[in-house]
Write a protein that binds this DNA or RNA. Structure first.
Length: 735
RNA sequence: GGACGGUUAGCUCAAUGGUUAGAGCAUCGCGUUUACAUCGCGGAGGCUAUAGGUUCGAAUCCUAUACCGUCCACCA
């Protein structure tokens, strides 16, 4: 190894990745026949709407470590990569792009928009795949899946049909979260609470004083609600009618008593707007009250507002108050009313609750088996506290709105009667599923055409235009991506072993995968859930485009090498806690890579004739060093099995640098000069043995440099393989 | 209002009830001995947030308090 004293990652990484890809060992079918026991990780499908960020770097590194370790342990190891169309997320990204280009989205035909986003996604695909390779991910590209592949769409449709047939899906006119900017409904998880200070208005409503922060919704209010036990209002009876003067003239109010009222808030009386408030909606449902829309889906007032019709609500509010003042209906106004408003998690627009016909999944029954599985520890969470968090959420679960009014997604395979709104789920004759991923993703899913007229009323049926919440399809990813129900892969690799993803999306994704997996396959989709935290910048701030502190992982791998980048992500990062990504640390691990390189140069130069398979009788001190190494192997193996990669990596770092390089090599320099053949050969064998073993142990963490040295510079001995499929040293110590 | 975390060296974080609580970065001193200056050797830096308790033994387990953070929740 007559090479430079500096390790040059750029001259190594691409070459080595190609070597691995050509070897075929990413594919479990190409591994040794002795590899029988499967080990499976399904990669969280990458959003196909941009580039990799540091968080992806962490996902790929952690999973690659697990996968490389298990592969070396002799498992039939599958790491299945995937891409997510990421419905709403991608459409938002694309709309922003269109906005910049000055092209309004809502003027575009849905098919056109779909086509453009598909093209955009395909462009990103190559980019993302190459970046994934740069991180060193040893995933099986031959099995790559995309959430819009026709076979995936088919699985998703079948699941939807089964839910519908089992009466677990319904189409209902319920109050939903409506984003006026994006013109779609959102699930409860896609809402961000924001604290805000507004005015609180005390208004005279007949004999009552009511409080509201949203006078613009009050046009249609005709129910006045109070707590049944409120003594202040005991003279008013349920159902009692009261004539009173309101914004646009006289109205008749009806008294309603409901325990949802907080007697301590304001005056203990409120009027309700069931169309635009979830609490009010519930009250109206309980008492079977009329509901009326006041604000349209663009956020403008409807004709019920008379002279305010067509005005945006923010603009209308002060004008309405002016009118109320002129009529003497304003009692007082508080300026510092602090309250929570719901906003769209993507654009921060204030959510306007609306009543709309939407598709919902009943979650209570689906949650029960998941609760049991988690309580019985059939699924283990790392870190443990996520068990409690999941259970708490599952036990308080509410129905899930799975329909979105966006084009970029899997169409909901249903028809709806124009007349009576009866829905038919019609998955029809789908085209045969294709085995080729992504390329065959279809723009529009073929729907069966059997149902033409409504069975109930004979009315015309129209195709549903809504698409699924993207999490509805990714919630089925473990079994869908493996080709449920008939494929050999599904039979071999499901249930999977580990689901590794960001703790942030535990409700969005992980828990829903458990529910849907159990519902469809009757099996837990995975045995372990490993959740990592956020990757923050060096100052501990969340990375965001607006803050301008986004770290591009590729810049770091370029600067310091992928191996150093990976070590920087792993060491000091315990599961579940966020990690401040400090460039200085990565530089430290680049130095470590260099240490490995130079120690290699020394070992190889001084052990030329040594055959590692022929162990000489060791000097006493050397035997002690070997015993110490074996202790390290046992410890590290245990750490790997316990998912404690941060400890394993740190131990290896320390052993290699401060024990092997600093002490053992220095000590053996004398022995290597010795004329006593016994002393010399003992030292040579020991150095080579320790060095080779360290390369094996370090390989999951630092795959490039270790493979490069192991394969290209270490002497050849019988049965030596590519490091990626070399036996994990533990198997040696077992003998 | 509920739930879940966290508090350890200047900074970022480890520590599987058991020697003297460890790393990296930063810092200070010394050192070019042909594997490596992307280096080596050495040092300084801690009442492990606070107060109790359990234990032969606690950073670690329990209780309370304080502060920081995250998530969930329908107060108009």
């Amino acid at each position: 190894m007559n090479l430079s004293t500096i390790y040059e990652p750029k001259q190594v990484e691409d070459k080595i990745y190609q070597l691995w890809e050509r070897s075929g060992f990413f594919n479990p079918d190409k591994l040794s026949k002795t590899a029988k026991k499967p080990f499976t990780i399904i990669m969280p499908p990458t959003n196909a709407n941009g580039s990799l960020h540091a968080g992806h770097g962490l996902v790929l590194t952690i999973e690659d470590i697990m996968v490389r370790y298990k592969r070396m342990r002799g498992f039939k190891t599958l790491w299945l990569p995937g891409l997510d169309h990421a419905g709403f997320e991608t459409q938002v990204v694309y709309e922003k792009k269109m906005e910049k280009e000055g092209r309004p989205r809502f003027k575009m035909a849905p098919e056109e928009l779909y086509k453009e986003i598909l093209e955009f996604t395909l462009e990103n695909k190559k980019n993302i795949e190459n970046q994934t390779r740069k991180i060193g991910a040893s995933c099986d590209w031959s099995r790559e899946k995309f959430t819009l592949d026709s076979d995936i769409v088919k699985t998703v449709h079948n699941t939807f049909k089964k839910l519908f047939d089992d009466n677990l899906v319904y189409r209902g006119k319920k109050i939903i979260n409506w984003c006026p900017k994006h013109q779609t409904s959102l699930s409860d998880l896609e809402i961000t609470d924001k604290e805000q200070i507004d005015k609180l208005y005390y208004l005279k409503y007949g004999p009552f004083i009511i409080t509201t922060a949203r006078p613009e919704t009050k046009f249609g209010d005709k129910y006045v609600v109070m707590h049944p036990k409120d003594k202040r209002y005991k003279e008013y009876k349920e159902g009692q009618k009261i004539k009173l003067e309101w914004i646009n003239g006289q109205v008749t109010a009806t008294v309603i008593k409901d325990t949802a009222i907080d007697m301590a808030f304001g005056t203990g009386v409120m009027t309700i707007t069931p169309w635009h408030d979830a609490v009010d909606f519930d009250i109206a449902e309980r008492h079977n009250l009329e509901k009326e829309q006041i604000i349209d889906f663009q956020g403008r007032l409807l004709p019920i507002a008379k002279e305010f019709t067509g005005i945006k609500i923010a603009e209308a509010r002060p004008k309405i108050i002016e009118k109320l003042k002129s009529k003497g209906l304003v009692e007082k106004i508080e300026d510092d009313y602090k309250h929570i408003v719901k906003t769209c998690y993507k654009c921060a627009t204030v959510i306007e609750p609306q009543i709309k016909n939407q598709w919902f999944v009943k979650m209570k029954l689906l949650a029960e088996p998941a609760i049991k599985a988690i309580e019985k520890d059939e699924i283990l969470f790392i870190p443990k506290h996520y068990k409690k968090i999941s259970l708490h959420w599952l036990k308080n679960i509410i129905d899930w709105n799975i329909s979105r009014q966006i084009v970029w997604g899997i169409p909901i395979p249903a028809k709806i009667c124009e007349k009576c709104q009866e829905a038919v789920v019609d998955i029809g004759d789908e085209a045969e599923a294709s085995s080729s991923p992504f390329a065959n993703a279809r723009v529009i899913v073929d729907m069966g055409n059997e149902a033409k007229k409504c069975k109930k009323c004979g009315g015309e049926l129209r195709k549903e235009t809504d698409t699924f919440d993207t999490w509805f399809s990714s919630g089925q990813w473990p079994f869908a991506s493996l080709g449920y129900p008939n494929s050999q892969d599904y039979k071999t690799f499901y249930p999977t072993d580990v689901m590794e993803t960001a703790g942030e999306i535990i409700f969005f994704w992980v828990v829903r995968m458990i529910m849907l997996g159990l519902y469809i396959t009757k099996k837990n989709p995975f045995k372990n859930v490993y959740l990592h935290g956020l990757v923050l910048d060096a100052q501990g701030n969340k990375m965001s485009k607006s803050r301008g502190n986004v770290i591009n992982p590729l810049e770091l791998t370029d600067k310091y090498g992928t191996d150093a980048f990976r070590m920087g992500l792993i060491i000091g990062n315990t599961p579940g806690t966020s990690l401040a990504l400090d460039e200085n640390r990565i530089r430290g691990y680049r130095n470590f890579a260099n240490k490995i390189w130079n120690a290699g140069r020394f070992v190889i130069a001084n052990t030329g004739g040594c055959n590692i398979r022929k162990k000489p009788s060791l000097q006493k001190r050397d035997a002690k060093h070997l015993a110490e190494l074996n202790k390290l192997v046992a410890d590290v193996t245990q750490n790997m099995d316990d998912f404690k990669f941060y400890i394993a990596a740190e131990k290896l770092y320390h052993y290699f640098w401060h024990t092997f390089a600093d002490k053992i090599i220095e000590e053996k320099k004398e022995s290597l000069k010795s004329n006593d053949r016994k002393i010399k050969s003992s030292a040579e064998w020991l150095l080579l043995e320790i060095y080779a073993t360290c390369l094996q142990l370090l390989h999951p963490f630092m795959p490039f440099i270790t493979e490069e040295i192991y394969t290209n510079f270490l002497p050849n001995w019988p049965e030596k393989k590519l490091l990626i499929v070399e036996n994990w040293p533990y198997t040696k110590t077992l003998k």
